[in-house]
Amino acid sequence: MRRALGDCVLAVSFLLAMLPAGRELSFTLAGAANVVWIAGAAIMAVMSFARFAPRSATVNLRTIMASGGMLILPCFMRPTNLSTGALATTGLIFELFGVVLTQVARVYMGRSFGILPANRGIVSKGPFRWVRHPVYFGWLILSIGYAMSYPNDRNIILIVATLPFMVWRIDQEEAHLSADPEYRSYMDRVPYRLWPGIA
């Protein structure tokens, strides 16, 4: 029952992420940016119901705050101040790249998908061969792309505010997974968290 409730809460959080973009659907470049955002959130909502139960997990106020901040803050972005020209095109490209990276990583994760720090098995194939957290990186790129499509102070502040929560969340996950010798070996093989050669 507890796991089913967790799956439902997770799915609802992704469905809520669709709301800002749903107000501005149209057959324009900006409309395409909204469709990409909605598709990404909808896929993640559906996949929330197909997860493995974790072998171990860390559930406390700190992990809930870090995970919630990372996921929820970008959902408060609003589609105002529509960009044009190269910025609009680049924003859409970022969004598409973010969705593709996130979903390809999700395919390789299979049912090992979760939000709070947990060990559902170590995944080291696909995008995980290059970085340890491609799903988070994809989510960040998708969010930045949306903010580029709709550049305003609110959206930029929300992206900047999301970064510390994402880093905090990654630190928590790696602290939890480091108890597993297989993950420690994986960290030795793949030194980068989000982008090869940078971080």
Rank of each mutant, 00 (worst) to 15 (best):
G121Q: 10
V160L: 12
L19P: 05
D180E: 15
I38Q: 00
L29Y: 03
S67Y: 04
M1P: 10
Y192E: 12
L163S: 00
K125L: 10
R169L: 12
N81S: 14
R193F: 07
W195E: 00
P134A: 03
I38G: 01
T162C: 08
Y150C: 01
T28N: 09
A53F: 06
P79H: 02
V99I: 15
M18E: 08
I157R: 12
T89R: 10
I64V: 15
P134Y: 09
V9N: 02
V12T: 14
G110D: 13
I43M: 07
R120E: 12
P127H: 10
A17K: 07
Q172R: 00
A30M: 02
N119L: 09
W130E: 10
G138V: 07
P79I: 03
G6I: 12
E24R: 13
R55H: 14
S124H: 08
R169S: 15
W37A: 12
M1G: 14
A41M: 12
I93T: 15
S67M: 05
A88G: 04
S143R: 00
Y136S: 09
M65G: 09
V167R: 02
S67F: 03
A175Q: 13
S56Y: 03
G40D: 09
F128V: 05
S178D: 07
G126H: 05
V160M: 04
V160P: 03
A53N: 00
F27I: 15
L194M: 11
V104E: 06
A86L: 14
P74I: 06
A147E: 08
P134V: 05
A42R: 13
M70K: 00
G121M: 13
N155I: 12
V46T: 14
F165A: 02
V99N: 00
V123W: 03
L10N: 08
W195C: 14
P117V: 11
Y192R: 13
R184Y: 02
W37N: 06
L163N: 01
P181M: 00
G91H: 07
V9Q: 08
R2N: 09
Y146T: 11
P191S: 12
K125S: 13
M148N: 07
S178R: 04
I156L: 15
W139C: 02
V123I: 15
G126C: 01
L15P: 05
A53H: 04
V99H: 06
A50L: 15
S149I: 08
V123H: 01
L142S: 07
R3I: 14
T162M: 11
A32T: 12
H176V: 11
V100F: 08
Y192L: 13
I170M: 09
W37G: 00
T102G: 10
L73P: 04
G68H: 01
L10H: 04
A199I: 15
V99Q: 01
N34H: 03
R129Q: 09
V36Y: 06
V12K: 11
G126V: 01
G126I: 04
N119K: 06
I115N: 05
S124Y: 02
L73G: 02
L194I: 11
W195K: 07
A147H: 11
Y108R: 10
M70R: 01
F97I: 15
R193G: 07
L61K: 07
R51P: 00
G69W: 01
I157K: 12
S67L: 01
M77D: 09
L73R: 02
G85S: 05
G91I: 07
M77C: 13
